[in-house]
Design a protein around this nucleic acid. Sequence first.
DNA 1: TCTTATACCGGTATTTGTATCACGGTCGAG
DNA 2: CTCGACCGTGATACAAATACCGGTATAAGA
Lengths: 95, 95
Amino acid sequence: MVRTPLTPWERERGERFGALLREARGERSMVEVAAVAGVSAETLRKIETGRAPTPSFFTVVALAFALDLSLDELAAACAPPGDGEHGEQGAALSA
Amino acid sequence: MVRTPLTPWERERGERFGALLREARGERSMVEVAAVAGVSAETLRKIETGRAPTPSFFTVVALAFALDLSLDELAAACAPPGDGEHGEQGAALSA
DNA sequence: TCTTATACCGGTATTTGTATCACGGTCGAG
DNA sequence: CTCGACCGTGATACAAATACCGGTATAAGA
């Protein structure tokens, strides 16, 4: 195997991540936020619904920027339980 | 065209991004940092050399975690010039 | 009712990320 | 010189991200 398929855990994380974005979007429409971030509405929808569980870094940066979110908070919110601050290795994140 | 190819500007940004990671890695070896982050050494190499200009969000999260970097600082360091704080739309980031 | 806007879903196309393998280069220890 | 560790490049393989299309459903407005 070359490209390890996404684990169920990663897909769950993607759903939580999308829920966070959707919550942060609030009343604004998908197309508006997507336009501000410079991504297509379909992409934003897939990320929000968890069908794109591991979006690209700069896509997330653009969305967080459009939504006034902190990347560190986003990452922390989707991090596995018991996430320390810096010394903890073996995070097994990737993807 | 469906999946827009990466623009030269995005590739440059990827190179800057990789240079930042390499600088933050300092003396530590690639294999060690990659192992801590939970990614393969080849993947880290491609990101550092800019041959993977738009890595996945959680991959970057894991690397930033392994390197004790702030995601917001990373994003800011790779942001286009004239990056305000929140109102600036049309960022045209994506990828 | 008809139209519009929004969101969801399926399919399709293309590009990219991730990982493995193979080979070569450099450097230091033996 | 050989061996090992590290870095780099190339090719290969597969899964996923992004984007566009059409269709569907719902709710608000003319």
